[in-house]
């Protein structure tokens, strides 16, 4: 997008980045993306005067950042409780009530407004994948003649389990953090 390379546009975006420095990273990045896309379109094929008009119509970077700040509200404690309960039930519910507990967690996850579609898919897939992969590995190990790889299989399974466990914890933490970020 060479259009946004205009020095005035560059300067505007730098000022906006500075003015929005105190906003949560997600909010700031989305704002910058939106404004950048806007300028790419409004200043394309514009002469100097056209670029100035486009920037004037946008409002000052400080006004734009202030509008974003006004939309940034701290999460209510009720929202936070819902998010934590969801992630907890998603991962531990199945141990309390097999299958149904997990399904409850998945339903809560998909009803949660603070997760993106990708995060919901990730959260839904995490536990089944964590169960299927080791199960498949174990079953395939039964098929391999025990004499051919007796020394390798033990450590491999162990490492595999460790990777799956770390992956699960990572998804767990990611979902909690994703819900906590302030998205506007």
């Amino acid at each position: 997008m060479t259009e946004t390379d205009h020095p005035l546009v560059q300067r505007y975006l730098r000022r906006l980045r500075r003015a929005a420095a105190d906003l949560p990273a997600g909010t700031r990045n989305e704002l910058l993306d939106n404004v950048q896309a806007h300028l790419a379109e409004t200043t394309a094929e514009a002469d100097e005067a056209g670029v100035r008009t486009a920037l004037d119509e946008l409002g000052t970077p400080e006004e734009v950042a202030a509008a974003a700040r006004a939309e940034t509200e701290p999460r209510s404690s009720g929202d936070r409780l819902y998010d934590i309960a969801t992630v907890f039930i998603l991962f531990a519910g199945g141990f309390a009530v097999p299958v149904l507990g997990w399904i409850a967690g998945v339903v809560m996850l998909w009803n949660g407004p603070r997760w993106t579609r990708g995060e919901k898919i990730l959260g839904t897939a995490a536990l089944p994948v964590a169960i299927i992969i080791p199960a498949a590995a174990f079953l395939s190990s039964l098929l391999v003649p025990s004499s051919s790889a007796p020394t390798v299989l033990g450590p491999v399974l162990l490492i595999g389990l460790a990777v799956v466990a770390i992956g699960l914890v990572a998804v767990f933490v990611h979902l909690l953090r994703a819900a906590a970020r302030v998205r506007t």
């Binding site: 989305e30 806007h38 946008l58 734009v64 202030a66 974003a68």
Partner: peptide, 10 residues
């Protein structure tokens, strides 16, 4: 200004 509407859209 036009830019102040983007946070609202978000």
């Amino acid at each position: 200004g036009q830019g102040t509407i983007y946070p609202l859209l978000s």
